[in-house]
């Protein structure tokens, strides 16, 4: 286990940020801390980094007791949401910072920094100031800076949160590739479930200061431990008092086994998908269903039509309502 966190409690005044949190993060994996804002995920990350200290509990990094070590004594790289670029230094100097602190020979610093800048595709920007870079470039610089000192653990706090959608998607893929190349144990915080599902090996869902569930992305999506996880990881709808994923409801044009009758109340086309809002004849629940365009055409869906629906293999949990 690369990082082992046990029994962490942290309060800010009356607010309980973390409530008896324990977590094991295996070496070399890319782990996402996923949850709504204010749920405690950033606080947990900052405690692992040493930027915050727990009220009780302990943190071990690669077998070393690190709970009370200041950040500079931990082998941890940290990337901030707003880049935390050293504004008065060039890109080169930013990346070289950690190596200069460690008093590495000049030639070695130069070589290593240029290698890293190449890795993050900023080699031609070495002499620029951070203010002359775009947000995405600044964040890549921040990543190179964190990697320069070869940390055992890389921690990223909402690293793509301040970037626009396009750049965000690019950097996401790029981070995944980078991780596969470098294999440094990485934890990143996000409130974007798509980001977590797409990039990580393992997701830790945190809400209200507690860990709701830990598992591989597909596991969490298909076998959520509770309503919260199910709702947070993807779209849900209610059918007969149960939470169901809207793409796990099958629509039939004619009555079938275990199928319930319903009427289409509204159709919405969103890009490649069609959302059909329905009302069941018995019980009067109003689920919505996600279909492909082709499925919708085959069923000849239109408002007012009767259809029959049944749930497939799908995960469902009892809705608390």
């Amino acid at each position: 286990m690369s990082i082992s966190v046990s029994g962490i409690n942290k309060r800010f005044g009356d607010f309980v940020a973390l409530d008896n949190v324990s977590l094991e993060v295996p070496t070399g994996r890319l782990t996402a801390l996923l949850g709504p804002s204010g749920g405690g995920k950033s606080t947990l990350l900052r405690i692992i980094a040493g930027l915050e200290f727990p009220d009780t509990g302990s943190v071990e990094i690669e077998g070393v007791q690190a709970t009370w070590l200041p950040p500079q004594k931990r082998s941890v790289g940290f990337v901030f949401q707003h880049y935390a670029a050293f504004k008065h230094m060039t890109v080169f100097k930013n990346v070289a910072f950690g190596l200069e602190i460690r008093r590495k020979p000049r030639a070695e610093i130069r070589q290593r920094v240029m290698e890293l800048l190449e890795l993050v595709h900023l080699e031609q920007f070495a002499d620029r100031l951070p203010s002359q870079l775009s947000g995405g470039q600044r964040q890549r610089m921040a990543l190179a800076r964190a990697l320069a000192v070869q940390p055992e653990v890389l921690l990223l706090d909402e690293p793509f949160g301040a970037l626009d959608a396009q750049v965000r998607k690019e950097l996401r893929d790029w981070l995944r590739n980078l991780h596969d190349e470098m294999n440094v144990t990485t934890i990143f915080v996000t409130h974007d479930q798509e980001e977590a599902l797409e990039v990580s090996d393992e997701i830790v869902v945190i809400n209200g200061g507690r860990i709701e569930q830990v598992g591989a992305p597909a596991d969490l999506y298909d076998r959520p431990a509770n309503d919260f996880v199910m709702k947070f990881l993807g779209p849900v709808t209610t059918l007969d008092g149960q939470l169901v994923r809207p793409h796990d409801i099958e629509l039939l044009a004619a009555p079938g086994q275990e199928a319930i009758e319903a009427t289409v109340t509204r159709l919405t086309r969103v890009g490649f998908e069609v959302r059909a809002e329905l009302r069941t004849s018995k019980g009067g629940s109003e689920p919505w269903v996600q279909l492909t365009r082709i499925q919708a055409q085959e069923l000849d869906l239109e408002p007012g039509r009767s259809v029959w629906l049944r749930t497939t293999h799908a995960p469902k949990t009892l809705a608390v309502s």
């Binding site: 980094a49 500079q72 008065h88 602190i101 460690r102």
Partner: peptide
């Protein structure tokens, strides 16, 4: 944040003051 970034890169209080705070 710049100060914290410098800290996570291994800079002690004095180094952070000279290299980050003063130039800022």
């Amino acid at each position: 944040e710049q100060d914290q970034a410098a800290q996570s890169l291994g800079a002690n209080g004095f180094q952070r003051f000279v290299r980050i705070t003063l130039p800022t």
